Structure formats: C-alpha cells, structure tokens
Deep mutational scan, measured.
Amino acid sequence: HAATELTPEQAAALKPYDRIVITGRFNAIGDAVSAVSRRADEEGAASFYVVDTSEFGNSGNWRVVADVYKA
C-alpha cells in the first residue's frame, strides 16, 4: 500500500519520525508527490507531508522535502 499524503492540519497533529529529500525532474507537482509517496513507502512510512518544493536553477530539476510519519 502506498503512503498517503496528509493535509496541513493532519501533519500538524502528528510528529514526523524522519524527513526525506528527493531531487529529480518532475513535469508537475503531482509527479513529485508520487515520487515522495514511493520513497516514503519504501521507508515503511504510513503517510507523508510535503514541507517544501524548490526548483534548482532553470534546469527543470526539483528538490522536494517531506516529513514522513509511521501511523
């Protein structure tokens, strides 16, 4: 099962156990969220919340930071 994305309210009520950072070329924010979901799932997380997204220069590469939560 894939890790689910939390709302800001849900994330605020929970304590993350880790923070992950992924970088890559994403065509849309949805693609980045899917990549975070896969990584969170690999780490055994039940859910995640994207904290920050930023573009690296003009290369089209993105850096996505997310907190991950157990259950």
Rank of each mutant, 00 (worst) to 15 (best):
residue 11 A to G: 02
residue 27 N to Y: 11
residue 17 Y to I: 04
residue 47 S to V: 04
residue 55 E to A: 09
residue 63 R to N: 06
residue 5 E to C: 11
residue 57 G to L: 06
residue 38 R to Q: 13
residue 32 A to I: 12
residue 25 R to C: 10
residue 2 A to S: 13
residue 51 V to Y: 04
residue 28 A to G: 15
residue 33 V to D: 01
residue 42 E to G: 05
residue 55 E to M: 11
residue 11 A to Q: 03
residue 25 R to T: 10
residue 61 N to P: 05
residue 23 T to H: 10
residue 61 N to K: 09
residue 32 A to Q: 03
residue 68 V to E: 02
residue 5 E to H: 09
residue 45 A to R: 00
residue 43 E to V: 15
residue 68 V to K: 03
residue 24 G to K: 01
residue 64 V to T: 01
residue 71 A to Y: 12
residue 18 D to R: 13
residue 5 E to S: 10
residue 66 A to H: 01
residue 16 P to S: 04
residue 13 A to P: 06
residue 62 W to D: 00
residue 9 E to H: 07
residue 50 V to C: 05
residue 6 L to T: 02
residue 14 L to R: 10
residue 9 E to Q: 10
residue 61 N to R: 09
residue 70 K to R: 11
residue 14 L to A: 07
residue 45 A to V: 02
residue 18 D to T: 11
residue 7 T to L: 07
residue 54 S to A: 13
residue 11 A to H: 04
residue 8 P to D: 08
residue 47 S to C: 14
residue 38 R to I: 14
residue 54 S to L: 12
residue 8 P to W: 14
residue 49 Y to L: 07
residue 14 L to K: 09
residue 40 A to H: 01
residue 35 A to Y: 09
residue 63 R to V: 13
residue 5 E to N: 07
residue 1 H to S: 11
residue 20 I to N: 00
residue 66 A to C: 06
residue 45 A to E: 01
residue 42 E to M: 11
residue 24 G to Y: 04
residue 48 F to V: 05
residue 63 R to K: 10
residue 9 E to V: 09
residue 31 D to R: 01
residue 25 R to K: 12
residue 39 R to F: 10
residue 63 R to Y: 11
residue 16 P to I: 03
residue 1 H to D: 07
residue 20 I to P: 00
residue 31 D to W: 12
residue 9 E to K: 08
residue 9 E to Y: 08
residue 39 R to P: 02
residue 26 F to W: 09
residue 17 Y to H: 04
residue 61 N to Q: 13
residue 13 A to W: 12
residue 33 V to A: 04
residue 34 S to Y: 13
residue 20 I to D: 00
residue 49 Y to G: 02
residue 37 S to L: 09
residue 70 K to W: 08
residue 49 Y to V: 08
residue 44 G to S: 04
residue 64 V to H: 00
residue 36 V to A: 08
residue 66 A to D: 01
residue 2 A to V: 13
residue 60 G to Y: 05
residue 40 A to T: 04
residue 57 G to P: 08
residue 21 V to N: 02
residue 4 T to S: 10
residue 24 G to F: 09
residue 57 G to A: 07
residue 58 N to T: 14
residue 49 Y to F: 14
residue 19 R to I: 07
residue 59 S to K: 08
residue 42 E to N: 06
residue 1 H to Q: 11
residue 2 A to R: 14
residue 58 N to R: 08
residue 7 T to K: 07
residue 31 D to V: 06
residue 63 R to A: 07
residue 46 A to V: 12
residue 17 Y to Q: 01
residue 62 W to S: 02
residue 5 E to P: 09
residue 1 H to C: 14
residue 4 T to M: 13
residue 3 A to T: 06
residue 11 A to T: 04
residue 30 G to I: 12
residue 21 V to K: 01
residue 32 A to D: 02
residue 12 A to K: 12
residue 10 Q to P: 02
residue 60 G to M: 04
residue 47 S to R: 04
residue 7 T to W: 03
residue 25 R to A: 09
residue 63 R to D: 02
residue 10 Q to T: 04
residue 4 T to L: 13
residue 16 P to Y: 04
residue 9 E to G: 08
residue 59 S to P: 11
residue 26 F to R: 00
residue 17 Y to M: 04
residue 36 V to L: 10
residue 55 E to L: 10
residue 68 V to T: 02
residue 46 A to S: 12
residue 52 D to P: 00
residue 30 G to F: 09
residue 3 A to Q: 03
residue 64 V to Y: 02
residue 68 V to F: 15
residue 3 A to F: 05
residue 9 E to D: 10
residue 22 I to L: 08
residue 43 E to G: 08
residue 56 F to I: 15
residue 32 A to R: 03
residue 15 K to D: 07
residue 66 A to I: 12
residue 4 T to W: 10
residue 67 D to I: 10
residue 52 D to E: 15
residue 57 G to D: 13
residue 39 R to D: 03
residue 3 A to H: 02
residue 43 E to I: 15
residue 40 A to I: 05
residue 16 P to L: 01
residue 70 K to L: 09
residue 3 A to G: 03
residue 29 I to N: 04
residue 69 Y to S: 00
residue 64 V to P: 00
residue 11 A to I: 03
residue 3 A to E: 01
residue 24 G to Q: 02
residue 69 Y to F: 11
residue 2 A to D: 07
residue 33 V to T: 07
residue 1 H to W: 10
residue 39 R to L: 12
residue 37 S to W: 07
residue 46 A to G: 12
residue 64 V to G: 00
residue 56 F to W: 11
residue 33 V to W: 10
residue 33 V to I: 15
residue 58 N to D: 13
residue 31 D to G: 05
residue 52 D to T: 10
residue 31 D to K: 04
residue 67 D to Q: 05
residue 35 A to I: 08
residue 31 D to N: 05
residue 12 A to W: 07
residue 26 F to K: 02
residue 56 F to L: 13
residue 43 E to P: 01
residue 27 N to M: 09
residue 18 D to M: 15
residue 37 S to F: 07
residue 18 D to F: 09
residue 11 A to N: 02
residue 17 Y to L: 03
residue 25 R to W: 14
residue 34 S to G: 11
residue 66 A to G: 01
residue 54 S to Q: 15
residue 50 V to P: 02
residue 8 P to S: 14
residue 40 A to F: 03
residue 27 N to L: 11
residue 7 T to G: 06
residue 26 F to S: 00
residue 35 A to R: 01
residue 55 E to I: 12
residue 30 G to R: 13
residue 63 R to F: 08
residue 68 V to L: 15
residue 64 V to I: 14
residue 47 S to G: 10
residue 18 D to N: 14
residue 12 A to F: 07
residue 36 V to I: 12
residue 40 A to R: 02
residue 71 A to N: 10
residue 56 F to Y: 13
residue 5 E to R: 13
residue 70 K to I: 07
residue 49 Y to I: 07
residue 66 A to N: 01
residue 14 L to D: 04
residue 20 I to Q: 00
residue 23 T to E: 13
residue 45 A to C: 11
residue 22 I to R: 00
residue 7 T to N: 07
residue 13 A to Q: 13
residue 65 V to S: 03
residue 56 F to G: 06
residue 14 L to M: 14
residue 22 I to N: 00
residue 44 G to L: 03
residue 15 K to H: 08
residue 13 A to F: 13
residue 56 F to M: 12
residue 23 T to Y: 15
residue 22 I to G: 00
residue 60 G to H: 06
residue 52 D to I: 11
residue 68 V to M: 12
residue 23 T to N: 07
residue 59 S to Y: 09
residue 27 N to F: 08
residue 37 S to Y: 05
residue 64 V to F: 03
residue 2 A to E: 10
residue 24 G to I: 08
residue 37 S to M: 11
residue 54 S to N: 08
residue 32 A to H: 00
residue 56 F to Q: 10
residue 35 A to T: 05
residue 70 K to A: 10
residue 41 D to K: 15
residue 36 V to D: 01
residue 6 L to Y: 01
residue 6 L to C: 05
residue 68 V to N: 00
residue 29 I to V: 12
residue 22 I to V: 11
residue 69 Y to Q: 00
residue 33 V to R: 06
residue 24 G to E: 01
residue 28 A to K: 12
residue 67 D to C: 09
residue 37 S to T: 07
residue 22 I to S: 00
residue 52 D to W: 11
residue 53 T to E: 04
residue 70 K to E: 09
residue 2 A to I: 11
residue 8 P to Y: 15
residue 62 W to H: 03
residue 57 G to M: 06
residue 10 Q to D: 06
residue 3 A to S: 08
residue 30 G to N: 10
residue 11 A to W: 05
residue 38 R to Y: 11
residue 44 G to P: 04
residue 30 G to Q: 14
residue 25 R to H: 12
residue 61 N to S: 09
residue 6 L to F: 04
residue 19 R to L: 06
residue 7 T to R: 07
residue 11 A to D: 03
residue 20 I to H: 01
residue 70 K to Q: 07
residue 35 A to N: 03
residue 15 K to L: 09
residue 30 G to A: 14
residue 45 A to Q: 02
residue 40 A to V: 06
residue 30 G to S: 14
residue 41 D to E: 14
residue 54 S to I: 14
residue 12 A to I: 09
residue 15 K to E: 10
residue 8 P to M: 14
residue 48 F to R: 00
residue 34 S to P: 02
residue 61 N to T: 15
residue 45 A to M: 09
residue 37 S to V: 09
residue 35 A to H: 06
residue 46 A to Q: 11
residue 54 S to C: 15
residue 49 Y to A: 05
residue 1 H to P: 11
residue 39 R to N: 03
residue 70 K to P: 06
residue 45 A to H: 05
residue 28 A to Q: 11
residue 12 A to N: 12
residue 20 I to W: 10
residue 25 R to G: 03
residue 33 V to P: 00
residue 56 F to N: 09
residue 62 W to Y: 11
residue 9 E to T: 09
residue 61 N to E: 15
residue 62 W to A: 02
residue 68 V to R: 00
residue 5 E to F: 06
residue 47 S to M: 13
residue 26 F to N: 01
residue 28 A to R: 11
